[in-house]
Design a protein around this nucleic acid. Structure first.
Length: 592
RNA sequence: GGCUCCAUAGCUCAGGGGAUAGAGCAAUGGUUUCCUAAACCAUGUGUCGCAGGUUCGAAUCCUGCUGGGGCCA
């Protein structure tokens, strides 16, 4: 276990939160009840199982008719040499029933039903008091997480792969912040490489300033493609490209001015997307930034005698790690990705003093990151362990990797615009009186695209489907947003005022909702531990489904003694849905 | 060839030792004089890729195999 995680665990334990076998149980009534249940069982079975083992065995049944907590008696059967069903039966009879609503033996299981009034009141009060701070923790206090995310290539379209990196990285940052960490979002732009030599050459031949200004990415991409097409006929073009890259490397004014200009214009276009996504960065120091920081790396490697020569190139041998050698310098003296990333890692460590450095980069680069860590370890940087490659699957088209070539790419910006357009049509159709239609449409359209990306585990490849991305019904972002908007509408119409001292009860219909609300902090922790935003996306769907079911069956605004309580529940749901969406980087509109 | 990831309903995916394997989409039918129908309800579907092993118990853990993706030479 990494040191950082140890601090987290010990902190949580101090705070009264308990951590058992990777499962984090939030502080609160339910946990106390689980503890209590374990203690009660220990009284009966202490000579066969200790309390900790009992606690482990207790589970939350999938079927509600099996109660809120359950204890399987199979393990006892072996030790006691008795039929497990009989053990369960006997335990049910002997268990003090006044602490629980109901205790039941079903087969080998001992099922326990909690006191709904009491439990619900505790959970709902907590949420009503804490509001958006519900689920916060302080495990990362004083620590910094650096997150390498997005990192598109200059002069190329913003691909869907970069979208994944962007939204996953942003969500991980938000989750880390909720756990008390400081974060640094780094946009490691692909702004260097031989392709810029080619681009400069192509621009000098065929480019137009006006066109590039008007439509930067498309124009630059067209120039790049034309360069490759023409180079097939006239190979001397390649030579020209190399010449201009050399000029660029040597600081030729003309070349540098063009490069800077390409970079700025591209960034300006990317910013439109980032603005729509609601994401900003703390640093956009890309590959070029490390040009003057690589020699230092080579010096250190040389000094530590880690470099070996292989076919004219300089490499770090990693056979002891069962890895191929890491190329540091090519035979022509040019440095490589690895060298640049080493320089970046060192720079980030010195600049941010991170306790964790995360790279949200595709699966296909996992070997590269293994090598990076191995080399850092050999360089005696103790923090090599704090580097984490958070990988994700690819976007596929017809089962294959999407090709960026030939200009036949789907532009993210077009997808976003289409999603927004669709949302706008829906508003016109369903809620034409809505104020601020455009901004709600943006929120919902963008929400659909982000949620679609985050709802499944990062590791899975995604088959590209515009239809799926734009879907707004079922397990989607707009579904959750809609549920939130409905809850807000109820609170407005019911003129809900939070009353901290009011006791909030719970009927049978609301119980599944309450149980889900209780579990939110646990879900946030799991998402943080596993670097997995999909945990939160799935949770928020579950909660929305549970609330919609409740809504369909119960008249929340009906006058009467329970109205205030139903609104209290509605408020708690709205708080958690909004916060859950926020952690995914999605805004929840109050009306839609 | 080496390393790695994946395989669950027609499709997209949950579930990561325990009770009858679940959602969404798609299909069909129903629900609005009533809190936003982007909703809710009902109906059908499974050799959990194959074969062994561990266990009282395996979709879940281990090994092997098959098929697919990716990375490296």
């Amino acid at each position: 276990m990494a040191p950082r995680e140890q601090t987290l665990v010990s902190f949580l334990q101090e705070a009264g939160v308990f951590y058992f076998s990777g499962r984090l149980i939030g502080k609160g009534e339910k946990m106390k009840t689980k503890e209590q249940f374990a203690a009660d069982l220990e009284k009966q079975f202490g000579e066969y199982l200790d309390r900790n083992s009992i606690f482990h065995l207790i589970e939350v049944p999938k079927q509600p008719e099996h109660g809120d907590l359950a204890f399987p008696c199979y393990p006892l059967a072996g030790k006691m040499r008795r039929n497990p069903a009989l053990i369960a039966q006997k335990a049910a009879n002997e268990l003090e029933t006044n602490d629980y609503e109901k205790v039941e033996a079903v087969g080998a299981y001992l099922n326990v039903f909690l006191n709904k009034q009491q439990t619900a009141n505790a959970i709902l009060q907590k949420i009503i008091q804490e509001e958006q701070n519900y689920g916060n923790s302080q495990g990362g206090q004083g620590e910094v997480v650096a997150i390498d995310m997005s990192s598109p290539n200059i002069a190329k379209p913003f691909s869907l792969g970069h979208l994944r990196s962007t939204v996953i990285g942003n969500s991980l940052a938000l989750i880390a912040e909720k756990c008390g960490y400081k974060t640094v979002r780094i946009n490691h732009l692909g702004d260097w490489g031989t392709q810029f030599g080619k681009l400069i050459a192509a621009y000098k031949k065929w480019g137009s300033e006006e066109k590039v200004k008007k439509n930067t990415i498309k124009e630059l991409l067209a120039l790049y493609i034309r360069f490759h097409e023409e180079a097939e006929q006239s190979p001397e073009l390649e030579e020209e490209g190399r010449f201009w890259f050399k000029q660029l490397e040597e600081g030729d004014e003309d070349a540098e001015a063009l490069w800077k200009w390409f970079r700025e214009e591209s960034l300006r276009e990317f910013d439109k997307i980032y603005k729509l996504l609601g994401i900003s960065f703390d640093s956009d120091e890309g590959e070029a930034f490390y040009n003057d920081k690589m020699q230092h790396i080579i010096d250190v490697l040389t000094e530590k005698q880690l470099l070996t020569e292989s076919e004219g190139a300089m490499v770090v041998e990693l056979s002891e790690d069962n890895l191929p050698p890491c190329l540091i310098k090519k035979s022509d003296g040019a440095t490589l990705y690895a060298t640049r990333d080493l320089a970046a890692a060192v720079y980030r460590r010195e600049t941010y003093q991170f306790s964790k450095s995360v790279y949200v980069v595709g699966n296909e680069q996992s070997l590269h990151f293994q090598q990076l860590k191995a080399v850092l370890r050999k360089m005696d940087y103790s923090w090599w362990e704090d580097i984490r490659h958070v990988s994700f699957g690819m976007i596929l088209k017809e089962g294959k990797k999407m090709s960026t070539r030939k200009g036949k790419v789907v532009l993210l910006e077009d997808i976003l615009q289409e999603a927004i357009e669709l949302a706008k049509n829906n508003i016109e159709e369903k809620n034409p009186g809505l104020a601020d239609k455009q901004s709600v449409a943006e929120t919902v359209g963008v929400g659909a695209v982000i949620f679609h990306d985050l709802k499944n585990h990062r590791h899975n490849d995604i088959e590209f489907s515009l239809e799926d991305m734009l879907r707004v019904e079922g397990e989607t972002g707009p579904y959750v947003q809609y549920t939130f908007a409905r809850a807000c509408s109820l609170l407005r119409k019911g003129e809900y005022q939070p009353a901290a001292d009011e006791v909030i009860g719970c009927d049978l219909e609301a119980w599944p909702v309450v149980k889900l609300l209780d579990v939110f902090p646990t879900v946030v922790h799991r998402a943080a531990e596993q670097d997995d935003p999909s945990q939160i996306a799935k949770y928020v769907i579950d909660l929305a489904q549970a609330f919609n079911k409740y809504y369909a069956g119960t008249r929340i605004l009906e006058e009467g003694k329970w109205k205030g309580q139903r609104l209290g529940l509605t408020f708690a749901v709205s708080v958690v849905l909004e916060e859950g969406l926020r952690l995914l980087g999605i805004t929840a509109p109050e009306e839609m």
